[in-house]
């Protein structure tokens, strides 16, 4: 536990001592902010038009669901932006240590490879949580001018967290394979993209295979969370993704030891 905490603390500190964390957080917030503005102004426009129409026909103005029409698309957008930005969070975790040789310190210290791995992974989760927490600012605006339901927002964020955790686990794996951070980030991005889009192929293949492929799609499992449904099926899916990613990372570190590679 102490070892895990020491690794975690160092990694988190190193994130916030380097410009990387700030750059990633800034751009993630900026891009989500722009889309938040677009989605919200679109929603407001629809509201105004609906109200005017209702007045014209002398009816009660309709109550439009801000959760379904603004927050849900917003959550989907953030899931996509996380796909772009999270590979940048994990890319350095192992690659940098391999390049600078500090991995030799960790691997010859009385800490297990598992403790090192979990410390690093948790550090990336912490950074991601900070990113997500800061986007709550946008939700404050919705609370100020509308009456959203809190449940779907929370479940949506739970979904975002789990989805991101899956990205990060594989980001960690690709970082453990190389000492080049760019390669780590690019392969993470490509890998996640494939598992994001794998569901789209299902329209073109036989229904049975299509169902299987759709099941493996990362985003397919997200929509229920965005709509306010917490289904254990989806939680299990994301957690298995996380475990598989960590398992591969562990294997890759062990194999590097045996091969005597860095």
């Amino acid at each position: 536990m102490r070892n895990f905490a020491a690794i975690l603390e160092r990694e988190v500190r190193s994130y916030f001592l380097s410009p990387l964390a700030y750059v990633v957080i800034f751009f993630f917030l900026a891009v989500s902010g722009i889309f938040f503005y677009l989605i919200l102004s679109n929603f407001v426009e629809i509201c105004i038009r609906a109200t005017m129409q209702a007045q014209m026909y002398q009816m009660m103005p309709p109550k439009l669901n801000v959760n379904m029409m603004a927050i849900r698309p917003m959550l989907h957008n953030m899931a996509l932006f996380a796909l772009f930005f999270l590979p940048l969070v994990t890319m350095k975790l192992y690659a940098e240590e391999k390049k600078s040789g500090t991995i030799e310190l960790l691997m010859t210290s009385p800490v297990t490879d598992g403790q090192v791995m979990l410390g690093k992974y948790t550090a990336s989760l912490v950074l991601y949580l900070v990113m997500l927490a800061l986007t709550f600012v946008y939700m404050i605006f919705i609370y100020a001018y509308g009456e959203p339901e809190t449940g779907p927002i929370l479940s949506g964020y739970l979904g975002l967290f789990l989805l991101g955790a899956a990205y990060l686990a594989f980001g960690l794996f690709f970082s453990s394979l190389t000492e080049n951070q760019i390669i780590a980030a690019a392969s993470t991005f490509a890998f996640i993209l494939v598992f994001w889009a794998i569901g789209w192929i299902s329209d073109f293949v036989s229904p049975r295979i299509g169902r299987v492929l759709a099941y493996f799609s990362l985003i397919e499992h997200f929509d229920d969370f965005a709509r306010g449904v917490i289904d254990t099926k989806h939680i299990v899916f994301y957690l298995s993704f996380v475990f598989f990613g960590l398992f591969l990372t562990y294997l890759s570190i062990q194999s590097a030891r045996w091969r005597g590679a860095k």
């Binding site: 160092r10 190193s14 001592l17 600078s100 040789g101 500090t102 030799e104 009385p110």
Partner: peptide
């Protein structure tokens, strides 16, 4: 064993940002 060994590799394993 690792508890009892102090090891300095050929390139000292230093974190430049600390």
């Amino acid at each position: 064993v690792r508890k009892r060994i102090g090891y300095m590799p050929e390139n000292p394993p230093l974190y430049g940002d600390m």
